[in-house]
């Protein structure tokens, strides 16, 4: 079992589709993490033309990577009492509402509360805040967690 600071190493993503910088806190009931949307991220070139704004799907992805995938790996390893080399999490549903745009260069904080983890399904209530502590978006995201092979 790894420390939650080590969870990032277990993530199956890499640049330009890794949307987690740091996990600030994590326990079996929830977690909190941050991500800086660098202004050189490739999607800003096209969303929108000459007016870069972070796409809602990317905000959702960031919420899911921090709030569902990081937490899911942690909960799975805690409940199985071992470390997995290869964890796959399939997003199964997301219901998000968006309130404030996130522009290039902004750092966001994602807070996730576990609603339930049963039969390999993790469902969380997730909220994203900007640096002014305003709610950027919030909603519920769920996924199925599978450990593919042992470490």
């Amino acid at each position: 079992m790894r420390d939650y600071q080590e969870i990032l190493k277990a993530l199956p993503y890499s640049d330009p589709f890794l949307f987690v910088d740091e996990i600030l806190h994590m326990d079996e009931n929830g977690c909190e993490g941050t991500y800086l949307f660098r202004d050189d991220l490739p999607f800003y070139r096209g969303h929108f033309k000459d007016e870069p704004v972070t796409p809602g799907v990317i905000l959702t992805e960031c919420c899911a990577q921090i709030g569902l995938v990081c937490l899911g790996i942690f909960i799975l390893e805690k409940s199985e009492k071992r470390t997995f080399e290869n964890t796959a999490i399939a997003l199964t549903s997301s219901e998000m509402e968006f309130y404030i745009p996130v522009f290039p260069g902004e750092r966001v904080r994602v807070k996730s509360e576990k609603l339930y983890y049963r039969f390999s399904k993790l469902k969380c209530k997730i909220t994203m805040f900007n640096e002014q502590n305003e709610v950027v978006c919030k909603g519920q995201i769920a996924g199925m967690i599978k450990a593919r092979s042992d470490a």
Partner: peptide, 11 residues
């Protein structure tokens, strides 16, 4: 029914 919804049915 997909596996995620099967969990919801069980719950």
């Amino acid at each position: 029914i997909n596996s995620a919804n099967l969990v919801d049915i069980v719950l």
